[in-house]
């Protein structure tokens, strides 16, 4: 993450686009916010560090301008997936790629410093030093990184017009990418059921996960809210909460680029990204497909083969 290189790129790109989307300082050092740069004197406000977690590609479908966007590995997959589905035009986007060593989970950091107000934060290669009014804490990046980063396969953007920094190799081998999901699946049915009932019980149906999701593009016609068809009531009961999360997960089948925005946005800390990762794992096993890798691919649910190699007919027992 090289901020000087990034500023240099933004300076060269800015004249040819309407807006550049990057990050600037937010309420504290742990919470940078999206920044829309339209003139050269705004460039110096840009920041780039492991606390920059937002998926800026999520703005692209609603912006009807020529846009340059700063993306990390997972978010470049979002751009690819959006282009693939025809939701944005490739020629309207300039992709500024940032090779990434992993981003912070603000929740994990705050837990580690006992939720004290952060005065300052400094970032090193594999650590973050957080300064509160009382103490200075050094945290290893691995301990406070977002869950998605721990199994990240694409730290270097898969698509970029400009690359701010050196390529980064994935630290996790391909076999281990879905290890957490396999571990979870090794539990008994009752354990998994109890786990999700407990998690979904906290859901307040704020729909932040859906609103943050760059691939949730139905907007006002989302079936979680329409009255016609009336898929769900507004009751705050467990079966309705469960249904909402099923809708989100299944509508993302073969489309989720695992940027982890749903989980980051959740105010209740529900691990909703797990559901999507499970489906992605099955997509890879069934169809050898990963979302957001190539613009010319087709999402597996939008297509078929007459003879499916991996799908066998099920017996009732």
């Amino acid at each position: 993450m090289n901020i000087e290189k990034l500023k240099e790129i933004v300076r060269t790109v800015l004249p040819s686009v309407d807006v550049v989307i990057g990050y600037k300082k937010g309420l504290d050092a742990l919470h940078p916010v999206p920044c829309f740069v339209t003139s050269p004197d705004e460039i110096d406000a840009l920041v780039l560090n492991p606390a920059c977690t937002h998926n800026l590609a999520a703005y692209l479908p609603s912006l009807k301008k020529k846009t340059a966007v700063v993306v990390k590995g997972c978010e470049s997959r979002t751009v690819v997936q959006l282009v693939q589905e025809g939701l944005i035009k490739r020629e309207n986007v300039v992709v500024i790629g940032v090779p990434c060593q992993g981003v912070l989970s603000a929740r994990k950091v705050l837990n580690a410093i006992n939720h004290q107000p952060v005065v300052e934060a400094a970032f090193e290669n594999d650590a973050v030093i957080v300064k509160t009014r009382k103490a200075e804490t050094r945290l290893a990046l691995n301990d406070v990184a977002s869950d998605k980063c721990l199994t990240c396969q694409y730290p270097t953007p898969v698509l970029s017009d400009h690359l701010a920094g050196e390529q980064v190799e994935s630290k996790v081998d391909e076999q281990a990418a879905y290890q957490d999901i396999r571990q979870f699946d090794a539990q008994s049915l009752e354990e998994r059921r109890a786990y999700w009932l407990k998690e979904f019980d906290r859901c307040i149906r704020c729909y932040a996960c859906r609103n943050a999701c760059p691939m949730c593009v139905c907007r006002e016609s989302c079936i979680a809210e329409t009255r016609d068809p009336h898929w769900m009531s507004q009751k705050a009961t467990l079966n309705e909460k469960m249904m909402f999360h099923m809708i989100h997960a299944i509508h993302l089948a073969g489309r989720c680029t695992e940027c982890g925005e749903c989980e980051r946005a959740c105010p209740m800390g529900i691990p909703v990204a797990k559901l999507k990762k499970k489906i992605n794992m099955e997509m890879k096993e069934l169809f050898g497909y990963e979302p957001g890798i190539s613009i010319d691919d087709k999402p597996p649910m939008y297509t078929f083969k007459v003879e499916e190699e991996k799908i066998e007919e099920h017996k009732i027992r």
Partner: peptide, 13 residues
């Protein structure tokens, strides 16, 4: 394709 995806997903929840 869809139903196979679903059949594999259901035990997860």
């Amino acid at each position: 394709r869809r139903l196979e995806m679903l059949k594999r997903f259901l035990p997860f929840v």
